[in-house]
């Protein structure tokens, strides 16, 4: 979303946010460079071919520099304005995915997939139980047929049931 398309105060806020994000990225790259011990200019110069730190080190330097340049000079593009409700929904989705991945390992793939296939559409506003149950059952059966039966993939059966 370009700054030009936003009302004055909102556009200004987006510009500040954009600069802040790129400044934070530059800081993060610098911190990783410092913490990882990859910043060894003398080694890069004296024996570049044998330096395992050359490529990631230079990439981090370039990343910090480019992000700093964007923070300072900008490029005419800004981030969309922050909408707290959307931000919360996005974070909730991320948390939900994390829980699903943990459930996948702990209670097994089929119960975890069943729960997700039933719960997620309901949370997203689809509230017709019969099509939902049919869809969940069919997809789980298809996955079992293709992955477990057909391809012999050992999907997690859950550590709780052992």
């Amino acid at each position: 979303m370009s700054a030009g398309g936003q009302p004055g105060a909102q556009g200004q806020g987006s510009r500040v946010l954009t600069r802040f994000v790129f400044l934070a990225l530059a800081g993060l790259a610098a911190a990783v460079l410092w913490q990882s011990g990859l910043f060894r200019p003398a080694e890069w110069w004296n024996d570049p071919g044998n330096s395992a730190r050359l490529v990631p080190g230079l990439a981090l330097v370039a990343l910090a520099t480019t992000a700093l340049a964007l923070a300072v000079f900008g490029d005419g593009e800004t981030l969309p304005p922050v909408v707290p409700r959307r931000l919360a929904a996005g974070l909730a989705a991320l948390a939900g995915l994390w829980v699903f991945v943990q459930a996948f390992r702990l209670i097994g793939w089929a119960p975890a997939a069943g729960l997700l296939l039933l719960a997620m559409p309901v949370l997203l506003g689809f509230r017709r139980p019969l099509p939902l149950a049919l869809f969940a059952a069919m997809l789980i059966a298809l996955i079992w047929l293709v992955f477990v039966r057909g391809m012999g993939v050992q999907l997690p059966t859950g550590t709780f049931w052992r």
Binding site: A113, L116, L117, L155
Partner: peptide, 23 residues
């Protein structure tokens, strides 16, 4: 398929596919 079902299906297929690559 209604979008919420597709989204849920994508999450499950993506997860199974990702896991199946390297177990």
């Amino acid at each position: 398929l209604p979008e919420p079902m597709v989204v849920a299906g994508v999450v499950v297929l993506a997860t199974i596919g990702t896991f199946a690559t390297n177990n």
